[in-house]
């Protein structure tokens, strides 16, 4: 049975993802779900090059990802699926894909959003999205690295509201 990690990280591929998750958990594939990256040829190539040769990078639009997952994509090999923002996760769920657990890694402070954890800052829209994701049966936990303690994000969000 192949393992799959779903993670929200607005920096997509960076050291934490590569060393912390992929290398530590012996994952072999990265799937990036983003319309923006899909349409940016140069950025796509940079992302592909930023990962060592033994790891595969797939870049999908949300619709493609949903079809792939339904076609047994996550059964093939150990994969980390990266999203840039909360809306894309919600959209993927709307296609009928079920996610058991979602890791929230980085959502950065940009001047107007609210910092709730060290590397997580949310807007009102994010809060609503997280609530919707939670109501669809997905467990939302935030931690930077797999060895860190899991923290329930919904609990934190409920506290601030």
């Amino acid at each position: 049975m192949a393992r799959t990690v779903f993670r929200i990280d607005d920096r997509l591929i960076h050291g934490q993802v590569l060393e912390g998750w992929i290398h530590n958990l012996n994952l072999t594939r990265v799937a990036i779900v983003s319309e923006r990256v899909k349409n940016d040829e140069e950025y796509r190539r940079i992302l592909e090059f930023s990962v060592p040769p033994e790891i595969k990078v797939d870049i999908f639009s949300i619709r493609e990802m949903a079809e792939k997952i339904k076609g047994g994509y996550t059964e093939e090999e150990d994969t980390i699926v990266l999203f840039e923002n909360t809306s894309e996760v919600l959209e993927l769920l709307d296609y009928g894909v079920r996610i058991e657990s979602l890791n929230v890694g980085c959502l950065h402070y940009n001047g107007s959003n609210l910092q709730v954890r060290k590397s997580i800052a949310v807007t009102d829209k994010d809060i609503n999205n997280f609530k919707d994701i939670d109501s669809m049966g997905t467990q939302i936990e935030c931690r930077a690295l797999p060895q860190d303690r899991k923290v329930d994000l919904v609990e934190i969000i409920n506290k601030i509201k």
Binding site: H14, G15, L18, S50
Partner: peptide, 13 residues
Amino acid sequence: LQMAGPLAATGDK
């Protein structure tokens, strides 16, 4: 914003 992540990944590795 866009370059920082991939460059960091390459550098870390």
